[in-house]
Design a binder for these strands. Structure first.
Lengths: 341, 341
DNA sequence: TGTAAAAATGTAACGGATTACATCGAAGTA
DNA sequence: TACTTCGATGTAATCCGTTACATTTTTACA
């Protein structure tokens, strides 16, 4: 592997001239520039970017903490980040954290060991501890998708409360009065937000909120299936299920169909996220579309602003949602269907 | 940010002693070691890993070229890689290449600019060009999932031909004589392998191969949907469709059901990959399970062997598949169903 | 032609950790 | 006591670009 000195020797110039030929060619005379360029090609010289990064103190790496890359929604966010990062000259270090706080803290530490310049966090957890705080400055971190209430941290998110309320309204308008909810983990602020929106809409419609109709899930297909199973084995009437993401909705539908229920004639099911599968399921899923790629793109742009010192304060960006009505929701049946069979 | 010199000064020792305290503590007397350790804590000193990587010439980074992180199967592979990499002290630089050769070549170049030590390629494309070849040595690259016929490159894959034959046999045993296939892109060796297995099984069963029953897809849900649409609008009888992955199978099922066909009574559909959704679809999908996480894990281990110089020649690992029979395949109907309606 | 200004190029310090080699002191041996 | 050996520690070179500053060359104009 050749280095800049060999190039300089071959071209008969100093290392500074070689460096300038690459960085600020306008400072080098055309004649010299040509000689240097030829030497570079001859030796197939590639600057050691590790040396550059070390010297400059800028790694141009961004650590991305992803709860799970297997989640289709996050996959879209990642894609958006990747494009924005490439455009800004940054590389992404994707970490599948499985939602583990310790793992996240370990990787966030890459900032301190100069392996990365910033962090994008897709979860509402602050992986930095207090003495990491850059005093009054902004943390080199942005939060996307979930809302993290760290004031020094820019955020891009959805108004989950409003979106959940819109979905609930849709169900209410169809005449549903007994709506169950399959929630995410209680630790997730997303879950809290969406539940608040759900309650808002119920209150607005003068329907009463029923704690017994709230079921826990963890955003996976299986957990949706299991929650639906619990819904089938309880005694309250239910004519619609609001699931906090599409995977759980699809899992729930699978269980409901196995019980012989027709969707949406017997029971309506709604999701959240609008993943690709939701358009090809039977029936296609009514859901909330989120601009996933835009989340990623915005997150990177916010972070780059922070890293460049352009950001004066922690901006909080809210992106728009869209209610997508497909065939998994329909009018409430005249008679509540007997679920237990 | 403190550096090793400040620590040395505070502890009243030389930088060498500090470095040794961290790297080979047994060479430092307990007394000194304690002093150094205290100084490190006092200053909250973290070694600058960029400097270490620069000096050592080892980045402990691995570039992973993923055609698309949105693919659920790849997501599982990634997870396997991540765990193995963490165990070996490597970080993953995930790149969503969208199957673009130029993008892959650009990122593979990170090896030459000393930003990464090795590459894991999940596609059958060699991103290195000839003059990158390490002469007779092994390339710092391993190929996973698809088979890339670069002799200097270790590979971990499935016997796709055998697996496809097994699936075809399953369909044949159910009495299917008119089996259509929804293929991946012709450029993918995977597609070629699976097609060969398909043909093998047909020949074995003395059924004739029919070129008109081969349909193109690109591994997405939508392409499966579209291909099924084409199947519905042609004149040959078809009682089963062998799809080259689960996404396309689910897309196809969606289209077939829209046409009023029952699965598997009217037509059988099979997939490949066994993604999570396939277990919750209606009907649950008959498919081939691949040990995705193990692919990832093996790929990393092979690469680490190469990087450590342990690998003498390019090993080709074949992992086992498993035929998962669910309810999307069933006995062929006595009378071929009229597809065009 | 002389001189100042501008352009081109060179010199060398620097960043932070590692490590070969040098040094020093203490313990061990004859 | 003199000498060897070993353990502990220090010194300084090294990895490879970048860049402030110094120096040389060219250009411009009086």
């Amino acid at each position: 592997m050749s280095n800049i000195r060999e190039v300089a020797d071959l071209a008969g110039v100093s290392v500074a001239t070689v460096s300038r030929t690459l960085q600020q060619p306008e400072l080098v005379s055309p004649k010299t520039r040509a000689r240097v360029t030829r030497a570079i090609e001859q030796l197939n010289y590639k600057p050691n970017l590790m040396a550059v990064k070390f010297r400059s103190g800028k790694t141009h790496n961004i650590v991305v903490l992803v709860p799970t890359v297997a989640n289709v929604f996050f996959a879209r966010v990642i894609r958006g980040m990747q494009e924005a990062a490439a455009a800004e000259g940054y590389s992404l270090l994707l970490v599948n954290t499985m939602g583990d706080n310790v793992t996240e803290q370990n990787y966030a530490r890459m900032i301190h060991t100069s392996q990365a310049d910033g962090v994008v966090q897709l979860r509402a957890f602050n992986p930095f501890n207090d003495n990491d705080a850059d005093d009054q400055g902004l943390l080199p971190m942005v939060n996307a998708c979930e809302i993290l209430d760290t004031p020094q941290c820019p955020t891009v998110s959805l108004d989950n409360r409003l979106a959940a309320a819109a979905m609930t309204e849709h169900l209410v308008e169809l005449g549903h009065q007994h709506i169950a909810m399959i929630k995410g983990p209680a630790s997730s602020p997303l879950t809290r937000e969406r539940m608040l929106g759900f309650k808002d809409a119920l209150r607005e419609a003068r329907l009463k909120y029923c704690e017994e109709l709230m079921f826990d899930g963890d955003f996976t297909l299986q957990s949706g299936f299991d929650a639906a199973d619990r819904i089938l084995n309880q005694s309250h009437p239910v004519s619609a299920i609001f699931c906090e993401n599409d995977e759980m909705a699809l899992g729930a539908i699978s269980r409901l169909k196995a019980a012989g229920l027709r969707i949406p004639e017997d029971i309506s099911v709604s999701g959240f996220d609008n993943i690709a599968f939701s358009n090809f399921s039977d029936p296609p899923l009514t859901t909330i579309a989120q601009p996933a790629e835009e989340f990623g793109e915005t997150a990177i742009n916010l972070l780059v602003d922070v890293l460049k010192g352009k950001a004066k304060r922690a901006v909080k960006v809210i992106l728009p949602y869209q209610l997508i009505i497909r065939n998994s929701t329909g009018p409430a049946p005249a008679q509540p269907v007997n679920l237990t069979r």
